[in-house]
């Protein structure tokens, strides 16, 4: 029985085994940081890489993320202040006027899986709410999603509002019609075409 089993169980999308193995490692006195980083988080890194390589499908990635979160839930009460400190805080939402959330949810789950604290504001979120929440949570990144070309201007106004508020928080955008060129045009700090790409992007921005 090793931490490697937790890693394998996440990659086998096996939530029950992840829970059981995590509990067993915890009870056995294994270092909690090791369980977290070598078991759960590194498994999700692997999932992200396999997905980007075209080896995993979206539902598999999500199942892995769910399994990982179930393990994390068991660890959480035992994490020290240092260990429980997330890799960063991401405020995410679908912009004003847009009710589409599949892509946003996907990014949200992947980010959680990668060890970020994610504050998901849901859909139809106005720029004031993004700015206010980011300030409250001292967010590192605000992630904006849109599916409709008609709601893409809400991204621009949100990015502008963040800048006007004088915050250090960076903005990233994504969604089917969104492009790198559009991101550059509205002054966003980053763009990704898919969920694992968004996770990589946030890692780059924070480091």
């Amino acid at each position: 029985m090793t931490v490697k089993d937790i890693f394998s169980a996440v990659l086998a999308f096996d939530e029950e085994t992840v829970k059981a193995k995590t509990q067993a490692e915890l009870d056995g006195g294994t270092d909690i940081g090791t369980i977290l980083n070598d078991g759960l988080i590194s498994a999700m890194d692997e999932v992200g890489e396999r997905f980007s390589a075209g080896e995993l499908f979206v539902p598999e990635m999500l199942m892995a993320a769910q399994a990982m979160k179930a393990g994390l839930k068991i660890l959480k009460p035992h994490l020290s202040a240092g260990q429980s400190k997330s890799k960063g805080v991401v405020v995410i939402g679908t912009v004003k006027g847009d009710l589409h959330d599949i892509g946003k949810n996907l990014v949200s789950m992947m980010m959680e899986g990668a060890g970020f604290e994610v504050v998901d504001l849901g859909v139809d979120v106005d720029s004031e709410k993004f700015v206010k929440t980011a300030a409250e949570k001292s967010a590192d990144v605000i992630a904006l999603s849109a599916l409709l070309t008609t709601t893409m201007p809400s991204m621009e106004s949100t990015v502008k509002a963040v800048k006007e508020a004088g915050m250090a928080t960076r903005t990233i955008i994504g969604g089917a019609p969104v492009t790198q060129a559009f991101a550059d045009q509205i002054g966003a700090d980053g763009y990704s075409a898919d969920a694992p790409g968004a996770v990589k992007l946030v890692k780059q921005i924070i480091s």
Binding site: F57, M63, I102, T179, A193
Partner: peptide, 28 residues
């Protein structure tokens, strides 16, 4: 949402996956 529903996880393999035809977006 159905993306995280177990029915999707159990049956998404019944979808057809191309080898040459490209279903990706432009940047992909």
């Amino acid at each position: 949402g159905f993306l995280t529903d177990r029915h999707t996880f159990e049956h998404f393999r019944s979808l057809w996956h191309p080898q040459l035809l490209d279903h990706n977006n432009y940047s992909g």
